[in-house]
Design a protein around this nucleic acid. Structure first.
Length: 464
RNA sequence: GCUCCCUUCGUCUAGUGGUUAGGACGUUGCCCUCUCACGGCAGUAACAGGGGUUCGAAUCCCCUAGGGAGCGCCA
């Protein structure tokens, strides 16, 4: 049997990290089984859905590399189909018109709550024979006896009593379908074999199964993923309240590989392995190994993974992402070192691409001012002599390579009987404005002969 | 209120009756070192609580507590 899964977000905001993980797990399961991954936009909430949100979801998935095989399908374009199936249920006596007013329903609800009962529809209209000439909704005739159970790939066997369910509305007064109904019709029509979604849907599942049964179609396999919690607290991740969109992570300097790797380990594991390439994830992914308890976000671990990929990925690839951030920070890289070389030099001292761009600015443009404390400590009359000496020797260098620069600096340190640090730090402050940079020889090579001499000269002039 | 789901170090997790309860992030100390880092080594810290079952429970059962979800003409 060909595996067919779907990711079905509602376009009411950006793609956040929790949604991204759901998409990732669907995608992994599908790729693992060589199936089809379908994207479906659940936009029947006309008030809250926006085209911008649809685009944000598409962008987020593209950034992560989660490609889909079919879709995107839009529910708003399938309204006629839902109405058709509602009619079918009506014709077969599996659904009925309900004329109850909202006022009556509200009173019923309050009454039940007061009696400490679970609020549910009392089936008042279920056996009406003649049609009334007033507004109505369509309700599904849920079986009122027995129970419905299903095997959830994450939670195991789950059982619900039909008496706990009620006759849910499947078509509103204006004829529009409701969520629990349109989902079933879509999953049926799209031949979905595995429904992988957040475990907030566990309670909806038995209702949906009853509709599947009424429609006489094969019931898909379900896998309900645990929610993702916010950092620290035990609050569920939500779009409002500072949430984390995938694109925000991009803007903050995270690599898609790091995000994917971080996400895949939230609720899933493969022994003690922490690092997974996309291919490895696909190879090992198994829904049966997915945890059933929620996981909290942890920025520190994400940062660690991000740096891991900064260091271990092909530098050319990292450089492409770095370019995006250079542009974002308006750093003109045309008159400076190759970004690939910058990546090699900076990866082990940066957690994010954003940080890498910030820390590499001085390779491309003059810094505005010396770090005050650094200048005070390292640009002293004594160190100016050293800088002058180094300047003179560097000026002679034709082949501007780290190796040659290193040789000059170490020889100077031996001759002057000074620690390397006593020489490197003044140079560093002179050429970068601060005390932090890659090894001094590498820093000077990247900076280039012209900028190096110019900045050394400026530092010496300043001190005179 | 009712129904359902969840509970191993601070965090992510391994573990499916017998382990000194393992790994990773973080954190602490040491080493390395031209700065910042990287890296290396060592340490820190957990089975929510209570009952059972069993020769033996993190693992199986029950109860309690805590957290979450659903009970919509939202998705």
């Amino acid at each position: 049997m060909l595996v067919r899964t779907r990711f079905a977000p509602s376009p009411t905001g950006f793609l956040h990290i929790g949604g991204a993980r759901t998409a990732l797990f669907c995608w992994l399961y599908t790729r693992r089984h060589h199936g089809k991954f379908i994207l479906r936009i659940e936009d029947t909430d006309l008030v809250r859905s926006t085209p911008e949100s649809v685009q944000a979801i598409l962008d987020g998935m593209a950034f992560l590399g989660l490609d889909y095989d079919e879709g995107p399908f839009y529910q708003t374009q399938r309204i006629e189909r839902y109405k058709q199936v509602v009619q079918q249920l009506l014709d077969e006596g599996k659904a009925y018109r309900c004329y109850c007013s909202k006022e009556r329903l509200e009173a019923l609800r309050e009454c039940q709550l007061a009696a400490k009962e679970k609020p549910r529809y009392d089936q008042a209209c279920r056996n009406l024979v003649e049609f009334k000439n007033c507004p109505y909704v369509i309700r599904f005739k849920n079986p009122d006896k027995g129970e419905v159970s299903f095997k959830d790939l994450v939670h195991g066997e789950l059982t619900f009593k039909n008496s706990e369910l009620d006759d849910l509305v499947i078509a509103r007064g204006d004829g529009m379908p409701t969520y629990n109904f349109s989902v079933v019709v879509d999953d049926m029509d799209m031949g979905i074999t595995h429904v992988i979604r957040g475990d907030g849907h566990i309670n909806n599942t038995p209702r949906q199964i009853n509709i599947f049964k009424a429609l006489n179609v094969k019931i898909p396999v379900f896998a309900h993923l645990p929610e993702i919690l916010e950092e620290g607290g035990k609050q569920k991740l939500s779009k409002r309240r500072g949430a984390a969109s995938v694109m925000q992570y991009r803007d903050d300097g995270f690599l898609p590989q790091a995000l994917l790797n971080y996400l895949v380990r939230l609720g899933w594991s493969h022994g003690d392995q922490e690092i997974f390439s996309a291919d490895e994830m696909i190879q090992y992914f198994d829904l049966k190994k997915v945890h059933s308890s929620p996981a909290a976000l942890n920025q520190q671990k994400l940062l660690w993974l991000n740096q891991h990929y900064l260091k271990s990925l092909n530098p050319e690839e990292v450089a492409k992402h770095l370019k995006w951030h250079m542009d974002d920070q308006i750093i003109d890289i045309t008159s400076g070192p190759d970004l690939t070389e910058v990546v090699k030099a900076q990866a082990e001292r940066c957690k994010t691409l954003k940080e890498m761009a910030e820390k590499s600015r001085y390779f491309y443009e003059d810094f505005k001012a010396y770090d005050e404390k650094a200048a005070k400590k390292f640009l002293t009359p004594q160190t100016l002599e050293i800088l002058q000496l180094i300047y003179n020797q560097l000026e002679e260098v034709i082949s501007w390579k780290a190796e040659k620069i290193h040789e000059i600096i170490t020889k100077a340190s031996e001759r002057l009987e000074l620690n390397l640090g006593k020489i490197a730090q003044p140079i560093r402050v002179a050429v970068t404005g601060g005390t932090i940079s890659p090894p001094i020889d590498v820093t000077l090579e990247l900076l280039g002969r012209e900028k190096t001499l110019e900045r050394l000269h400026r530092a010496i002039e300043r001190g005179l």
